[in-house]
Amino acid sequence: MYQTNYVRASSIDGAVAKLDDEAKLLAGGMTLLPTMKQRLASPETLIDLADCGLAGIEDLGDALKIGAMTRHVDVETSEIVAKSIPALAVLAAKIGDRQVRNRGTIGGSIANNDPSACYPSAALALDATIHTNSRDIAADDFFVGMFETALEENEIIIAISFSKPTAAAYAKFPNPASRYAMVGVFVAKGDSVSVAVTGAGEDGVFRHAGLEAALTSSFSPESVEPVTVSGDEMISDMHAASDYRAHLVKEMTRRAVAACG
């Protein structure tokens, strides 16, 4: 394991005080620690947020607020989530495997913005607000590009608020080896319909305007068929070519809409 120094912050202010160019924040560690083993990251210091009191799930009436250090397993099994946005519990249950879900956190996933991670699609589709120690950021402004977010160097995610939809569903085509999304589509219905796609975009998670327009005018699985989904700016790799990913985007959208009932 790469040599590093470990500190456990006892408060957000304490964590911010220790943050500098050579430090990284440690949440569940399910991505960061493997990345360090592969020498893809080499932080001099790891600042563990475990004792900063950032875990918890709260129903705000028109929104659901989830603390940054809340683990996937806690979202998966939460009664509050099951009652207010069950699609979010379904999404959490599809992440990695049980052992990863027992450690991995929502804040870590959102902050990392892996182009194949599940949570960013829910944040975009559910018009989420990312609360940090210094400001609130709309999800539309937060995800900037592959592994890139609007977070500043000294900014820490405190919680994420998801707007409650009238209906929502997540459909995922997992890579069978990594269990990341080859393509994942989160569909949320409110006054209009949001369709957020993960796993496919060269710039990470994105919303698909064509699918949203078609589903806003008629919300049914059949509405997906005539929409053109181009693979031009989609990922092409050993797992799937871009045109196959484009095909999966439509198919996962169709399944998600069907699952909305």
Partner: peptide
């Protein structure tokens, strides 16, 4: 009581 992968945690955690 919860299962975790001990290769992906630091001992100090």
């Amino acid at each position: 009581g919860e299962s975790v992968k001990s290769c992906t945690m630091l001992a100090v955690m």
